[in-house]
């Protein structure tokens, strides 16, 4: 397998499930692409991304409730940074996972992070109209990234 899509979030907190929705929209996944759905990133993921040449982390972005922008971002993680003091203990950022994987496991692939705006993180299932729209945009952006190789 060449590409791993890691969807982070809790689908029982509405827009926090946006990343998983993107995976649904991409299914069936193209050959050479796998998906992993997780509630949060933990240090073990530093080892699990090792076999892949490309990793894309998808996660919801918390926006102000009045936000109407549907801009999805898809950026390459070029210089992975580490926060302190919560770094890589309980919940980790994509950059921390990539940094840890490069440092400890020798990960040599490329990594991207895809942020999907969300405005409703209350209890319950289903995305807000804004998050649904952004999930569709993110899915399209990922298709283009995957096609571009």
């Amino acid at each position: 397998m060449e590409t791993l899509l890691i969807a982070v979030g809790n689908p029982l907190r509405r827009d926090d499930g946006a990343a998983r929705r993107v995976i649904e929209l991409l299914e069936p996944l193209p050959p050479g692409v796998e998906a992993l759905e997780v509630h949060q990133l933990t240090p073990e993921h530093a080892d699990e991304i090792l076999p892949y040449s490309t990793v894309v982390f998808l996660d919801a972005m918390v926006m102000a409730p009045e936000c109407t922008s549907s801009d999805v971002f898809l950026d390459e993680i070029v210089r992975p940074a580490v926060r302190w003091p919560g770094a890589v203990i309980h919940e980790s950022s994509p950059a921390e996972i990539v940094a840890l994987s490069r440092r400890v496991f020798g990960f040599e692939g490329r990594a991207w992070v895809c942020g999907i705006p969300g405005v409703d993180f209350s209890m319950g299932e289903g995305l807000s109209p804004l998050a649904e729209s952004c999930a569709r945009k993110a899915a399209q952006a990922l298709r283009e990234l995957l096609l571009a190789g």
């Binding site: 080892d47 580490v82 302190w84 770094a87 890589v88 840890l100 400890v104």
Partner: peptide, 25 residues
């Protein structure tokens, strides 16, 4: 304190940090 996390441990002993992560895994 800025070093007192798993990255600091990895800088001190990479194999030790890797084994810790994999034991939990």
């Amino acid at each position: 304190p800025a070093r007192r996390h798993i990255f600091g441990v990895a800088a001190e002993d990479e194999d030790f940090a890797r084994r810790g992560i994999r034991l939990r895994q």
